[in-house]
Amino acid sequence: MVPETLNAYIGLSAALFALGFLGVLVRRNTLVIFMCLELMLVASTLALVAFSRYNGTMEGNVFVFFILTVAAAEVAVGLAIIVALFRRTQTIRVDRLDTLKR
């Protein structure tokens, strides 16, 4: 891989990461926030794979499998919490969840 290609991949990865980060901060719907979190994980994954190919070491590729597993576990628990919360409060908008004092 030539440096220009690496730059393109890392640029894309950074853009996706920034998009996800802003989404978490700005959006109010829990499910959209959750998707933005996944976007951030995927952006890191892309960076790892690109670096792994460029550096010629396999570690980054192997790490990606672990990250996918972790992300799956996180989603499973997260969606369970969201469903349980929706059953009690009938809303998943973070600005309406204010039982706890601010």
């Binding site: 978490v24 994980l41 670096f51 792994s52 980054g60 706890l100």
Partner: peptide, 24 residues
């Protein structure tokens, strides 16, 4: 739980991106 989930996952993503950059 939901607040911890969102902010915890956010911080994990920051950590992960940092690891990816250091590795690269």
């Amino acid at each position: 739980g939901l607040k911890y989930l969102i902010l915890g996952a956010l911080s994990s993503a920051l950590l992960l991106f940092g690891i990816a950059i250091l590795y690269g």
